[in-house]
Design a protein around this nucleic acid. Structure first.
Length: 311
DNA sequence: AAAACTATCCGCCAGA
DNA sequence: CGTCTGGCGGATAGTT
């Protein structure tokens, strides 16, 4: 699990240089730039700065580099690359979206780390920066305070992931509801849905997922999910894996742990009760799954959350 | 902690 | 043809 270097109310800066893609800065602007005092207070300090104002980087706790338009062969602006390298060395969290990842790679801060970019360019990225572990089929990566999103749509997921890291699941979920967005997808989701005719099937599966998420307190089997979707278990397994990269049971367990995390954050329920409400049969089962998926014990998670939010 | 038990996963394949 | 489906069964994973 990543150690948090930022805090609620931290300073987020988007670096705008030349021809950025406007869509790629939409998610950060919407999520970090709009006051959310009804959800959490203080919210982020947010600003957008151009290449000429890169002194503003000094105040930033998080810097976001959106994709540059034009051919990726063009090398990124050196002063931006230097500014990013310097910022990272002084402990700033660095985020890239789409081809913005090339700036991070050029700065050398991705060497030996996982990163992703738009699938069309991942080959180029891997070839030009062999030391970078390019993950071509995930929505986003998060390693050592360096986060990379595959593209515009994934940037939404990544921004929510950041909110979750800074404020916890309960706040992130409240924000998701307010934005009227589908439930947050984690970084392991596949980027490209392989089958071209996946359209309607996709809908059936996501419907089922929403239903499951709303009924996590009940014990559910993969067959139950399949029945709900009107598919055989074999087909459900195939479709769910195509869209989430996980098997049905794995996906379900992740949802259960997420639910447990939310309860740990905002309630004082006992482990038994949290286990029951998140659909884990016993506290022992909860502990084991929680550790496997979240990397800590439920109790440790609760304490860490209270410590960093002072609640 | 380990064994016994059950559920799930996934390659394969015939059929639509 | 190519694509999708769902059943089968051995290997695995998860639970108790």
């Amino acid at each position: 699990m990543r150690t948090l270097s930022t805090h609620p109310g931290s300073f987020v800066t988007v670096a705008v240089t030349g021809d950025i893609s406007i869509m790629e800065i939409a998610a950060p602007c919407e999520i970090f730039g709009v006051s959310r005092t009804e959800i959490a207070d203080p919210w982020y300090e947010f600003n957008v700065c151009t290449a000429r104002e890169m002194a503003a980087f000094e105040d930033a706790d998080t810097i976001i580099i959106p994709g540059l338009q034009g051919p990726v062969e063009k090398s990124p602006p050196p002063q931006l690359v230097n500014a990013v390298r310097q910022a990272y060395q002084t402990g700033t969290r660095i985020v890239s979206i789409g081809t913005g990842t090339f700036v991070l790679a050029e700065a050398g801060i991705l060497d030996g780390r996982r990163a992703t970019t738009h699938w069309m360019h991942s080959g180029t990225l891997a070839a030009r920066y062999p030391a970078v572990k390019v993950e071509s089929d995930v929505l986003y990566t998060d390693e050592d305070d360096i986060l990379t999103a595959a593209g515009m749509a994934a940037s939404v997921d990544l921004c929510l992931h950041i909110v979750q890291a800074d404020y916890g699941s309960a706040v992130a979920n409240a924000l998701t509801r307010q934005l009227v967005m589908p439930p947050h997808r984690d970084g392991g989701h596949v980027q490209v849905i392989a089958s071209p005719a996946a359209g309607s099937m996709d809908h059936v599966v996501s419907e089922t997922q929403s239903w499951v998420i709303a009924h996590l307190d009940q014990p559910l089997t993969v067959s139950d999910m399949a029945r709900r979707a009107g598919l055989s278990t074999r087909s459900l397994q195939r479709h769910l894996k195509a869209s989430t990269g996980k098997t049905p049971l794995q996906w379900l367990l992740v949802q259960r742990v997420h639910k447990a995390q939310e309860l740990l954050e905002r309630t004082d329920y006992t482990m038994e009760r949290i286990a029951a409400e998140s659909g884990m049969s016993t506290a022992a089962t909860l502990r084991r799954q929680f550790r496997q998926i979240a990397g800590t014990s439920p109790d440790g998670y609760r304490r860490a959350f209270r410590d960093r939010t002072g609640r």
